[in-house]
Amino acid sequence: MLAMRHISKVFRTDLIETHALRDFSLEVAEGDFVAVTGPSGSGKTTFLNVAGLLEGFDTGSYQLDGVDTSGLSDDARSRLRNEKIGFIFQSFNLIPDLDIFDNVDVPLRYRRMKAADRRERITSALDLVGLGSRAHHMPSQLSGGQQQRVAIARAIAGDPKFLLADEPTGNLDSLMARQVMDLLEQINEMGTTIVLVTHDPELARRAQRNVQIIDGQVSDYRPYEPHAPAAREPVPLAAGAGA
């Protein structure tokens, strides 16, 4: 379970203070598939970065899988991130001079894992996303959709509990977006908790739960109830957002 309570995050630049998150509370239960929507600049990416331990926060508390994350050293945060969290980005962010195999290998390298084990995981992750035969292609030799699938393979190779995806379909056409979405659903069914930031209401509708962030806050925060209905009606989206 991922539990944020009363988190605030302020960006200070020379001229202005931006309250990217204010009194932000959210809980994501194990096995959930949560779609996060909200207007641009509302704090969605900031939320994912805090959730993924890429960024700290100013006040509040954040528990990741039962571990209180405040006051952890960089080493501990990195280990936690490596073991519990997989990231997927809008722009794929594959490492251009590593081939597909080595890209998927990256998170595994930061654990002390035997080469044979790593190979096995990489192969099965690539098979899952349907790119087993492309292991030794370079990222530039793949289409955008394929690259994003490699990124997904990389995110799940370490078998994390949480998958954090920031507009993973933002750079893809609708057909490829749907394929990626299918893949995420499949991964969720296998037990991985997914938090998906998207502007696409159609994709959001496919998630079990929708959360809207407006102005650094969850607009419809409800503490997690174990027996609440899994899926709910999508929250109306901000005007103008469309596929």
Binding site: G52, L54, D74, D75, R77, S78, R79, R81, N82, E83, F87, F89, N93, I95, P96, V106, P107, Y110, R111, R154, G158
Partner: peptide, 16 residues
């Protein structure tokens, strides 16, 4: 730095 950012996101510590 962007690539390093990716590595960090995938679990590399500052020390690594």
């Amino acid at each position: 730095a962007a690539i390093t950012g990716v590595r960090r996101a995938l679990g590399a510590s500052r020390r690594q």
